[in-house]
Design a protein around this nucleic acid. Structure first.
Lengths: 256, 256
DNA sequence: TGGCGTTGTAACATAACCGTAACACAGGCT
DNA sequence: AGCCTGTGTTACGGTTATGTTACAACGCCA
């Protein structure tokens, strides 16, 4: 799993020259990232690497400081540890979103494994993206890049949501009701194809070309088998089925 | 940007009977407009006038409420005040566009004079149109009409509707009064053929060629059996029959 | 190299569907 | 009323689409 996310040139992470000047010069100066993180070691690690990638950084250790810093420094992006003493991440999110000046400030949550529940909550509260601890620094920097890019170009979503299913095409992850699921690569692509047009029925042929490629010579029945595997993965706990069979036509995923 | 607006007779705005029945009956019921506006007086003004023009309306006063309402009510169009407490208009836009279900939901921004900057931003974020305060009610309604017409053209070609029957050729679903029904493939195609020309009587031969194909060698009486099965599926709860038998000719489905 | 996860296929099991025939019923005609 | 014709209704055997399982091949990584 997770083949896709690793394919952005990793060396860019550590090379300040990695991003082109033309891309950079849109900023009056280097973008300022505010890192809200109570563990000093982690904060330092992040700061060091972001700076190497050409960002300015400021580190604060709790929510109070954070709100102050936001006001005084007007950062371009926030890296927000979800578990904080005093003011929780969610609370900071909420307060920032409540203020006009910071309403559109990109916020990337940093969550620990096992906090999947909070994740959905955070996205609803206005976080733009998330990184899961322990994170690869490449991934972190890629997401910071992406988030900043999104604020200038329009918002390109990489999250597909249907009901309580959430598919992240960049992180290559799927969760249901906040619970992280494990899908094999083919299952993932199959689900992605289906979630890209929810409600719509896709024929086996359509799925074959989308998931296996136009030139593949795979049998149509193979789709069925993978649908079965997908269902098994999605409905681990006897929950209602998202994948609908339309006899004589194909499959679809529906919200209701 | 969308030139918009001018194509439609303005006086229709205040005449409930202004739009023809044929135009209207494409919707399962009156289109639902979600009005997101924190100033109660303005919200009321809009609501009153839209309702006079035959729309159903729901008013919410902030972003949180709005997102909730979108999820629960699935409105057909959103009127979004740009200046809101808490969640800004742009943020609401973005969140709606991030979800597959609401990616194509028409959004009309309502901006105050002097917010031109935000306006461009909003259009980039996915708003479909805008109205500038102070607006003429005719203009507002004209834009609502236009936006709904656009969505109907762009992604409703696959919906057939007769009375409270709704057939979706893309999702391959049929519902009656919002209740999803299960039809076998042949029943579905039969109903589709009938609903494609509502009110018109189709002979058994016509149906045979449309549903079974030109070259099929199926007995004409077979149609009767499938009509029976179709009726059974449609009228599960003793509701009035949509399928009309025309003795000596064939069958049709009618609204009344 | 050996275990592990993944994949495509074949084979079997099951459920859904289909077409037909046979009979029941209704409407119109003499 | 009695007949004829057209339609409603039902039951049933056969067929097909899909669900399900098992397995061999493959690549990957330790």
């Amino acid at each position: 799993m997770r083949s896709a996310s690793d394919e952005q040139n990793p060396q860019r992470a550590n090379t300040p020259g990695g991003r082109s000047t033309s891309e950079r010069q849109r900023w009056a100066r280097e973008p300022l990232v505010l890192i809200i993180e109570d563990e000093a070691a982690i904060a330092e690690l992040i700061r060091y690497n972001l700076q190497k990638s050409g960002y300015r950084c400021q580190v604060v250790h709790d929510g109070e400081e954070a709100l102050l810093a936001v006001e005084e420094q007007t950062p371009d992006l926030i890296l927000l540890d979800w578990m904080l003493p005093e003011l929780s991440g969610i609370e900071i999110c909420r307060r920032l979103r409540a203020r006009v000046e910071t309403r559109n400030l990109p916020i990337i949550m940093v969550t620990a494994r096992g906090e999947e529940q909070d994740l959905l909550r955070g996205l609803r509260e206005g976080a733009d993206d998330y990184v899961r601890k322990p994170f690869s620094l490449n991934e972190l920097i890629a997401r910071v890049d992406a988030a900043l890019r999104r604020t200038r170009i329009s918002h390109q979503a990489h999250l597909l949501e249907v009901g309580d299913l959430l598919l992240d095409t960049e992180a290559v992850t799927v969760s249901r009701a906040g619970q992280r699921l494990h899908l094999a690569p083919t299952e993932f692509r199959l689900l992605q194809a289906l979630m890209q047009s929810p409600g719509r029925v896709l024929s086996r042929d359509t799925l074959l070309s989308q998931v296996w490629g136009l030139d593949s010579d795979v049998e149509a029945r193979t789709v069925d088998v993978h649908v079965r595997r997908l269902r098994q993965a999605l409905n681990a706990g006897g929950q209602p089925d998202y994948v609908r069979t339309v006899r004589g036509v194909g499959y679809s995923v529906d919200a209701d």
